[in-house]
């Protein structure tokens, strides 16, 4: 079927980096313990939170060690690949990850549309936009507007951070990345405040209606994605002080930036569909 040819220049020499790594195993064990812990929390067992915290701690330590190791070694040789186009592997990866995430959010949006239609058919009213007292409740307001501004502008800053890195303006890159992280944190903070306001002041809890449940599930799932993005961008920012990124090695940032734009797009869809009911 094929011939070996030792004189072919398109094949880069293989660099041996070992075939073991303790962190994936450790992270999996941590995650399993955390999941067991969460289950016990749901079942109101006293040791639940403890197990969750221990498991999450192990998981986070393992992931942190994994990431710092990635940063330390030359990424191009990390997997011992024969293909010189390593950066494009990262881009393909994040592309398919985004596709998968699209189906994740798609399933929740489908839940929303289905239940909305179900409501219209069976109750005649639009949606159960009511709080506990049965008063009509408007979810659009100051905080979603602020959050939209935060997230959209953070998408802009992360783009220019990448541009700055490519052109070797390291200080500007770090400032822009720091702004992006701050905006992401502000978004998550705004979301938490909004939940607090809705649940405690307005008595609009996830339990009051199918709409409320879908709203909280969707926004929390999105918020957790923002949080994951913030953690990734923060670790890149920290790494940049140790020269882990350079004009020639910016693949980690471009992958994170693609992901960040995706999270932004989902937020805009969320605003248009759930908050403003344009669709």
């Amino acid at each position: 079927m094929a011939d070996s040819n030792s004189h072919n220049s398109s094949v880069t020499p293989y660099t041996h980096l070992g075939h073991t790594n303790p962190w994936p195993f450790t992270a999996s064990v941590g995650l399993m313990v955390a999941v067991f812990g969460l289950l016990l929390v749901a079942l109101k067992s006293p040791v639940g939170w403890m197990l969750t915290i221990i498991g999450a701690g192990v998981f986070l330590i393992a992931v942190f060690s994994w990431v710092t190791m990635l940063v330390r070694e030359d990424i191009g040789e990390a997997t011992g690949l024969t293909n010189p186009e390593f950066p494009s592997i990262g881009r393909w990866m994040v592309g398919f990850l985004i596709l998968s995430e699209t189906f994740l959010f798609g399933a929740l949006f489908a839940t929303y549309f289905y239940l909305r239609n179900h409501d219209q058919v069976y109750t005649g009213s639009l949606l159960h936009f009511y709080n506990l007292e049965g008063k009509v409740f408007e979810i659009w307001g100051l905080f979603p507007i602020l959050n939209t501004i935060f997230l959209v502008s953070s998408s802009v800053t992360v783009h220019f951070a990448e541009e700055a890195l490519r052109h070797g303006k390291e200080k500007l890159f770090q400032i822009l990345l720091a702004i992006t992280v701050v905006l992401g944190v502000l978004f998550v903070g705004g979301q938490v405040y909004e939940y607090y306001n809705f649940a405690v002041n307005e008595h609009f809890t996830p339990q009051v209606s199918t709409f409320a449940g879908t709203f909280y599930t969707l926004t929390t799932l999105h918020g957790s994605h923002v949080l994951a993005g913030v953690i990734v961008l923060t670790s890149l920012l920290v790494g940049s002080f140790y020269k882990s990124l350079s004009p020639k090695r910016h693949i980690a940032l471009s992958v994170a930036s693609i992901y960040w734009h995706f999270v932004d797009v989902i937020w805009i869809l969320l605003v248009a569909i759930i908050y403003l009911r344009y669709i």
Binding site: N21, P24, L81
Partner: peptide
């Protein structure tokens, strides 16, 4: 190929 594209993710 020598291995999968993401060997550590694979282990995870």
């Amino acid at each position: 190929a020598r291995d999968m594209a993401f060997p550590r993710l694979n282990a995870m």
